[in-house]
Amino acid sequence: MGSFMPREGSTAMDKKMCWILIFLTIAGNVVMVQWTVEAYLGREFEQVVVYSGIGVVLAFIALIVYINWRKLEYSTEGHR
């Protein structure tokens, strides 16, 4: 029982990190949507492509982090 504790602790920390990263991607994507629309209306097309690219990358980061979180979450809860 005691041998599980450090592993549980680090997993909890990893999961917390996943939550933080996902919320950071939301914040980043909100900013990217705002900047993309602003650049589009200002006909700054090169900027639109850059901001949109960053938005897509952040979306994929969110997906990858989510997959990682799901792996941690369901593997630890399965022992109960």
Partner: peptide, 25 residues
């Protein structure tokens, strides 16, 4: 958390039509 991930992805991908239009423009 699943909803949060969905929201993040929806926001990020919603910029794609703008960049497609921009590339045509």
């Amino acid at each position: 958390l699943k909803t949060a991930v969905g929201a993040s992805m929806a926001l990020g991908l919603s910029t794609v039509p703008f960049s497609v239009r921009a590339m045509m423009g």
